[in-house]
Design a protein around this nucleic acid. Sequence first.
DNA 1: TACTCGATCGGA
DNA 2: CCGATCGAGTAA
Length: 186
Amino acid sequence: MHEIVDQQDWMRRGAVRHARNLLGKFLVRAGSSGTMARMITEVEAYDGERDLACHARAGRTARTETMYAAGGVWYVYLCYGVHEMLNLVVGPPDWPSAVLIRGVDGISGPGRLTKWLEIDRRLNGLAAEPASGLWIEDRGVRLPRSLVQATPRIGVSYAGPVWAAKPWRFMLAGSLLVSGRGRSWK
DNA sequence: TACTCGATCGGA
DNA sequence: CCGATCGAGTAA
């Protein structure tokens, strides 16, 4: 119980598989007001330059450089000039892929969760380990497959019909708290 | 250097 | 539905 997920694990396997597996894990934040841990309830996978919804679709740039790192570091960027978005980089080096943390127990929405957990771009590129103040723990929750629901990702219509339709958003089925404005995803 | 447009959210 | 708010990416 309460095992910190090892960086070796983040380097193996792809973003879609990691996204599913992150459901039920705990996001742990050691911040100015103590340590808080919440179960991850909603995520999205972004996988490689071929994925037209992924920031790395245009290749290596100053911003996407973090995504090319070996799995196990945080990728945090500013969205709409307002919201900090938290991603965990996964997979081997030079394959830009990450999992966007969209929701945790009691907090729905990627912008809200970073606000309440005091997460910003200062964490960009830092390891998902206690030393950085933000890490992932496996606390033994095992979710039945039937509880995991897959849908298309939110807000990525710019990616075109094929990539926007990929069912790479994973969430706990029946969860009352769902981000994306409750809209039917398009 | 001048644009455009977001992996969102809260309020009208 | 709309505005906030700013930096990355692109074109020039």
